[in-house]
Amino acid sequence: MLCDICKKNEATIHYKEIVGGQQKSLNVCAECAQKHEKASGMNFGAFNLAEMLFNLGKLSGGPEMEKEASLPEQLTCPQCGRTVKDLHDSGGRLGCAACYKSFAPLLEDVLNRVQRGRVHVGKRPGVKRRNIAGNAAVTAAKLAALREELARLVKVENYEKAAQVRDAIRELEKAAKPEGEV
């Protein structure tokens, strides 16, 4: 891939940002990155966990990035007020349980890379549990994700894991019935 700025050298630095739900990317070579860093105060080289996890670069400073630096509303957590910038500054730490929903588009990639599966198959809390997303639409979305995972597992013939996911689906279906509401 060629550098977006000079269009000559091979791009070795890949900068990604999600703006208004759309992913925008900038691919530059080391030389242009250095020039750009000096000119704009942007720091491509700074490496922290947030960047590694979420592909978040520095979110303010550069003239070309200025417009994009105004963060979209849907990527601020309505529950705790955490922003993408907060994630960046804290090394990728989420602010509350609801952040998992608020930053879902960013989390997708992290979970795919770091984790072994997409569905929790381990221990569950007892009676005092409170599902952070108890409403029907969210449950439906979750069921859809679980069914997708089930299909994937069956395809790769991981029947043991598939059985666990099937049980998770059953449990969620049971919980989704009115009398099962927490």
Binding site: G92, L94, A97, L107, H120, R124
Partner: peptide
């Protein structure tokens, strides 16, 4: 806790 993601932690 979340049905799909399990126990929710500060770092994903």
């Amino acid at each position: 806790f979340d049905d799909t993601l399990g126990y929710l932690t500060s770092c994903p």
